[in-house]
Amino acid sequence: MEALTHFFVGLHIVGISALLGGFMTQMKAMGAGEARIVPAMLHGALTMLVTGVALVGLNEADGQTVNHVKIGVKLALLVVILGLVYVKRDEERLPAPLFGTIGLLTVANIFIAVMWT
């Protein structure tokens, strides 16, 4: 069970990397007002959702305690990120504040995961 949990943690990190990496590749374009959602951002957010749910299920099944408030906050942020990315994925240009919000929520999700104990 531990190996499976580690596998999903790795996939979860791959998902956050794709989401944040996709955002970072568009930062220069964001300054020019020409940022757009790249497919890696959508796929990364979906990967995070699926692996996050799997991780909660695996930890619950293994009898470990899960901080449901933390998971709820992270899930709420991810649902907002996923909604923005999904709805705006076909637009050629996004306003800088909207695109920046996606990056800010992504970084907030990372810090909540790491610092909230």
Rank of each mutant, 00 (worst) to 15 (best):
37 I>S: 04
102 I>E: 10
17 S>E: 04
5 T>D: 02
17 S>R: 04
76 A>R: 06
18 A>L: 15
41 M>V: 07
6 H>S: 01
22 G>N: 01
44 G>M: 06
69 V>A: 13
3 A>M: 04
16 I>H: 08
11 L>H: 10
17 S>I: 15
16 I>N: 08
51 T>H: 02
95 P>F: 01
93 R>N: 11
43 H>N: 05
78 L>Y: 00
2 E>Q: 11
112 I>F: 12
23 F>Y: 12
80 V>Y: 08
108 A>S: 15
78 L>N: 02
73 V>F: 02
109 N>W: 00
106 T>I: 00
117 T>W: 02
100 G>Q: 05
64 Q>G: 04
98 L>I: 14
83 G>T: 12
75 L>E: 00
103 G>T: 14
68 H>F: 09
117 T>F: 08
91 E>F: 05
90 D>C: 09
85 V>M: 03
75 L>F: 04
15 G>D: 10
25 T>G: 10
42 L>F: 02
101 T>E: 08
20 L>G: 07
29 A>W: 03
13 I>G: 02
54 A>G: 08
48 M>G: 03
54 A>V: 13
94 L>G: 01
90 D>K: 15
9 V>M: 06
38 V>T: 14
46 L>M: 09
5 T>L: 10
46 L>Q: 10
97 P>C: 05
80 V>E: 03
39 P>R: 01
109 N>K: 06
9 V>H: 05
75 L>H: 11
53 V>W: 08
95 P>L: 09
89 R>Y: 01
81 I>A: 14
55 L>W: 05
15 G>F: 00
114 V>K: 14
74 K>N: 05
57 G>N: 07
34 E>F: 06
107 V>F: 14
48 M>S: 03
109 N>V: 08
97 P>I: 08
